[in-house]
């Protein structure tokens, strides 16, 4: 909720706190997945595999709204806004740069909240297929969600034929972000 710790906290404690913040966010993605029509019809094994592959990418989309690309600032959950420069000084470098760039591209599309939610569902079911057992079922769900997203976007913007293809082009960006950053190390204290 806040990147700046009281002076009494060691950098180790700050890093533990930062690592912990991912836990509730991941749980929210699991709950979100369960609300996607058709997701719980997949085998439990395949639900787990999609979540393991896709959660980081869904989180990147969710956290976009915290980034202000023009000002290069991030708003944390405590309501405070910090510049990229000050966050870099705390050691939060390359992942933040990549998230700013992605936020700028996604933000420029001007999606409504329901469109973002449906896009996140598409992101999740478009995750890496290795380990999926019933590939056909996952592909059918992906196709249904993409059709729904296309229909929602084009019905609202009948004169803009470029928005939907531009949105789909964000999927490979997310995969790249995932490949580059999901191996970052977190540290959890063992009590």
């Amino acid at each position: 909720s806040c990147p700046v710790a009281p002076a009494s906290r060691s950098s180790q404690e700050v890093w533990e706190s930062f690592s912990q913040c991912f836990t509730p966010a991941v749980k929210e993605v699991v709950e979100f997945a369960k609300s996607i029509p058709g997701f719980q019809m997949l085998s439990q094994h395949d639900q787990v595999m999609l979540l393991k592959s896709g959660t980081f990418q869904v989180l990147m989309v969710r956290f976009c709204s915290l980034f202000e690309p023009k000002e290069r600032t991030v708003t944390f959950l405590n309501g405070q806004t910090y510049s990229l420069a000050s966050l870099r000084a705390l050691g939060m470098g390359s992942l933040l740069d990549a998230m700013f760039d992605f936020s700028e591209k996604l933000g420029s599309l001007g999606l409504e909240q329901d469109e973002m939610a449906l896009f996140m569902a598409v992101v999740l079911v478009s995750a890496d297929r290795s380990g999926i057992v019933e590939v056909g079922a996952v592909e059918q769900l992906q196709e249904n969600l993409i059709k729904a997203l296309r229909s929602l976007i084009t019905s609202r913007r009948p004169d803009d034929g470029t928005l939907f293809p531009k949105l789909l082009l964000r999927l490979p960006d997310l995969r790249t972000l995932n490949n580059q950053h999901s191996e970052k190390l977190l540290a959890f204290r063992i009590d």
């Binding site: 836990t23 699991v30 787990v48 393991k52 950053h181 977190l186 959890f188 063992i190």
Partner: peptide
Amino acid sequence: PKTHRVMTLADHISHIITQDFARNQ
């Protein structure tokens, strides 16, 4: 002295998901 478990963000995500599904079985 404190000891730490170090894991990647990917492994942490996997761990949370596995725990969630096991809890709800």
